[in-house]
Design a protein around this nucleic acid. Structure first.
Length: 277
DNA sequence: ACCTCCCTGGCC
DNA sequence: GGCCAGGGAGGT
């Protein structure tokens, strides 16, 4: 399930394959993937013949800069991944979009559940999209701890729900939110406004190291292998997760069994001893 | 601040 | 055969 680290790893592979190159041809295989364009046909039409000037990321969104002020936006949703391959390599199942780049290589989007999308937006369409509601990028633009304290003050919702809210901070998903709270020693269901300054500081301080470690290990490929690196390798952060996906197994710090509860309609994993309520 | 929907592979 | 996983949009 691609979150900030998986998307960043993807971006680092995608950039050299795409930046400075012209899109020769783009194909939407599954119409639903282009649903975020008012006219879905615009996606392939606008990509064709355009040079990619840059490939950035905001939270979980890949954002390519195209000639003519257009932006090429991709989100991997739950089950999506980017695959970069030679044209002769067979398409993986559920290759719902592909673009052949100048030089011959193909950028392919594989996404069985089709929660992801690919869009090409004008500046006006970008401004009308939810992209402008995204909070600062959790890795590249993490606000100082004081800013976080201010935005959590008075909030009654569980801290985990706020960490997942992309309008507050962009990039954390279910895995890394659990890992950040584990590292910070904060229970996921704690009302955000009830956290002490020291606790907010611990959360703030955990975000960078958790995300950086995820990136360093190529992201988290779960057993379903829905997420893979663009070259087909699996990310290896799974082995280093402290709490996510480990219910009933011993906490690495104290040995207490990890618990799983539901917070904000999502599974939450934590150590009941290291993260007291 | 909640809830529902979208979608499919994998698992019980 | 049915349920679960879940990011984000849209609704109430």
């Amino acid at each position: 399930m691609p979150e900030l680290p998986e998307v960043e790893v993807t971006r680092r592979h995608l950039a050299p394959a795409a930046v400075g190159r012209t899109v020769v041809r783009a194909v939407i295989v599954r119409a639903r993937m282009a649903r975020r364009n008012a006219r879905p046909g615009d996606v392939a039409e606008r990509l064709a013949g355009r040079r990619v000037l840059g490939m950035g990321r905001h939270g979980k969104f890949l954002v390519g800069e195209l000639e003519g002020g257009l932006r090429w936006v991709m989100h991997l949703g739950m089950s999506g991944r980017i695959r970069i391959a030679g044209p002769a390599e067979p398409h993986d199942a559920h290759t719902n979009f592909w673009a052949s780049m100048e030089g011959g290589r193909e950028v392919r989007m594989v996404d069985p559940r089709t929660f992801g999308f690919v869009a090409v937006w004008t500046p006006e369409e970008w401004d009308a999209s939810t992209m402008v509601d995204l909070g600062p990028d959790a890795l590249d633009d993490l606000p100082p701890v004081g800013g976080l304290v201010g935005r959590l003050a008075g909030r009654t919702g569980p801290i985990k729900a706020l960490l997942l809210d992309q309008r507050l901070l962009a990039g954390l998903g279910n895995i890394y939110a659990d890992e950040v709270l584990a590292r910070a020693g904060v229970h996921p269901a704690r009302p955000a406004g009830s956290l002490s300054g020291a606790e907010v500081e611990a959360i703030h301080g955990a975000i960078g190291p958790v995300l950086a470690a995820g990136i360093q290990h190529g992201g988290t490929s779960l057993d379903d292998l829905a997420y893979l690196l663009p070259d087909g390798r699996a990310g290896e952060y799974l082995d280093r997760l402290r709490v996510y996906g480990r219910p009933g197994q011993p906490c690495f710090t104290c040995g207490a069994p990890i618990e799983r509860i539901v917070v904000a309609q999502r599974s939450a994993h934590y150590c009941p001893s290291c993260q007291p309520r």
